[in-house]
Simulated scan of single mutants.
Amino acid sequence: MTGKFELYKDKSGEYRFRLKAGNGEVIASSSESYGSKAAALNGIDSIKRNAAEAKVDDQTD
């Protein structure tokens, strides 16, 4: 099973999303809330476009 984005409303009625792995475990979630569904979907789309080519900046050293 593949992962999926879940779009939901938080307690204040704002939109948020989380990314779940195929096993149902949450592996990422939006750190900000969105005032509209369209804005939240745009955030998801931005992650889809940019994450594949994102580099890892290891700042542990």
Rank of each mutant, 00 (worst) to 15 (best):
L41S: 09
L7K: 05
D58G: 03
T2A: 15
S33L: 06
A38V: 09
A40G: 03
Y8P: 00
K11H: 12
N23L: 03
A38M: 06
F5Q: 07
Y8Q: 09
R18A: 06
R18K: 06
G35M: 00
L7W: 05
K48E: 14
R18V: 01
N42D: 15
Y8H: 12
N23A: 04
K9G: 04
E6N: 09
E6L: 07
K11R: 15
A39M: 08
Q59G: 08
I47S: 03
N42C: 11
V56E: 12
G3N: 07
Y34Q: 04
I27R: 03
S46N: 14
S29I: 09
Y34M: 01
A38S: 10
A51R: 06
Y15K: 05
A40L: 01
S29G: 13
N42E: 15
Y8N: 05
E14K: 15
G13F: 01
E6P: 00
A21W: 07
K37S: 13
D57N: 08
G22R: 04
G3R: 11
S12C: 04
L41Q: 15
A28M: 13
Y8D: 10
K4C: 14
I47N: 06
D10V: 02
Y15F: 13
G3V: 06
S36Y: 05
E6C: 05
K20I: 11
E14W: 12
S46C: 12
L19D: 07
G24A: 03
T60R: 10
L7A: 00
Q59W: 11
M1Q: 05
S31K: 15
F17I: 06
A28E: 13
A52T: 10
A39K: 12
N42P: 03
L41K: 11
A51H: 05
R18I: 00
V56Q: 14
K20Q: 13
A52L: 14
A28V: 10
